[in-house]
Structures are given as structure tokens and as C-alpha cells.
Simulated scan of single mutants.
Amino acid sequence: MIKASNIQKYYGKLQVLKGVDLHIKSGEIVSVVGASGAGKTTLLQILGTLDKQSNEKESTLVLNNIEVTNLKEKELARFRNEHIGFIFQFHQLLPEFTALENVCIPAFIKGTSKADAEKRALELLSFLGLSERTNHKPNELSGGEQQRVAVARALINNPSIIYADEPSGNLDTESADNLHKLFFELRDKFGQTFVIVTHNAELADLADRKLTMVDGLITNTDTAVVETISDNI
């Protein structure tokens, strides 16, 4: 599902990622933890194709069996829209649009008809307990409700991979707990793969696997996962 090797990233002379290797299988929920500045968000942005590794020719990044480094910009944008969903700490909802409209935006970008996009969006909002809030704008929703709208937006195109960057960092304890449970419900219902960067110890420990980043590297290995995949071939 996600295979990365020798991912390096420089900002000027500062090396943020120092050769990250990663292997995540389909349907897995993986948390990524580490101190601030360890490179977690930078790695997530590269895995999500929002940024590029500095050493493209000496590294690989395969998502859904596609080497995304080889894609041209328009192809990459389409791939991102169709295969990847993003959930951020700050929901990034557009304030002038309703919950329903915000959720539909990625579907409209994909070219989905208004009727089909709204049907899918209403199904997701209902699943997330927001059927009574579809016509409310973000400033009329609680923090937890806004984040659930952002989750629905991430799911609208049925992506196979969801990347979440501190998704509960801006929520109260109850809302955060509900969001954490929701990720597992979504995985069980829709089969998505989740990669979650978090400082929340409870969420990190709930994941199928926890990866720790220190100074631009993942310090624990993926040996167990590789063995499991090999056993199933």
C-alpha cells in the first residue's frame, strides 16, 4: 500500500529527513510519534504528495502500486484527489460554505456531478452523526463537529489512504476520544489505510503499529509487517 525508501529532505543546508524507509500494508492504522522537529509532518507531507523528497532519483515512493515520483504535476494532482484524503489539526473548512458544500469540494474537483456528490456527502455526514448540521456553516458548529465535517471531506472520493496530522490536537478530551474511535470505525467500514501523526499517547497506542521518529529517522523497524506480508504471499 505505502512503500517508501531512502526518503531525504533538505531545507537549505538543514537535513530534516535522513533516509526514511517505510512499509505500511493496506487497512493498517499506523501512528507516527516523536518530539517536535523530528520530521513527522515533513514525512507526512511527502507521503501525501504535498511535498517532494530532495533526492527523488535515489529514493522511491510507491502508493497503491504506483511510483508517484514518476507522475507529472497534473497526473499527481489527480492521483492525490482520487486516492488520498487529508485530515489536519485545524479543520481548514471554508467559512463561507455549509458543511455539505465543504464536504463536496473534492468531489467537484474530481468531476463528480452535483447530485452524486451531494448524495455521497449526505451519506457520510449521516454516518458521522451530522445529518442535522448539513446546512450549517463552520462558525455554527462545535470544534468536534467541524473536525467530523473535515473527516467527511477526506472520505468523499473513497480514497484508499488517509493521512492525519495531529487530528485531535485542537479538540477537547471527549471530542478527541470520539474522533479516535471514529478512525477505527471508518477503517472497519471502508477499509482505508490510516497514517496518523500525533502527540496524543492514547491515540498512538491504539494504532495497529506505532512508529517513532527521532532526528529525521524512524527508529523502530517494519520487520514484523514485512514478515506478515511475506507469509500471505
Rank of each mutant, 00 (worst) to 15 (best):
I87G: 04
L44Q: 02
K52C: 15
L22C: 03
Q92D: 14
T41M: 02
V33R: 10
K18C: 03
L76G: 08
L47F: 07
V30M: 06
G34F: 12
E56N: 05
P95F: 11
I24Y: 06
K72S: 14
K110C: 06
P95M: 09
T42N: 04
K74I: 00
Q92R: 11
I29E: 01
S36N: 06
K74M: 11
L14W: 01
V20S: 01
L43S: 04
N55H: 07
L100S: 06
I105A: 09
E58H: 15
K52E: 15
F90G: 01
L94Q: 12
I87K: 10
G39Y: 09
Q89S: 02
A35Y: 04
L94T: 14
I87T: 08
K74S: 15
L94N: 11
T49K: 06
E28W: 12
E75S: 10
E56G: 00
S59C: 11
E96Q: 06
Q92S: 14
K13E: 08
L47S: 06
N64L: 15
T49W: 08
T98A: 03
E75V: 08
L17M: 04
V68C: 12
G34K: 14
L44C: 09
S31C: 08
E75I: 01
L93S: 07
K52R: 15
N55S: 15
L63M: 09
E58G: 09
L14Q: 07
S31Y: 02
E96W: 02
Y11Q: 07
V32T: 04
E82F: 09
G39N: 11
T69P: 00
L63N: 02
E56S: 07
N64P: 00
V103D: 00
E101N: 05
I109F: 14
F79H: 13
I109E: 02
N81P: 07
E82P: 03
C104A: 14
L71V: 13
E73V: 12
R80H: 14
G37L: 12
C104H: 02
K110S: 14
N55Q: 13
L94G: 10
Q8I: 06
V68G: 10
N65T: 11
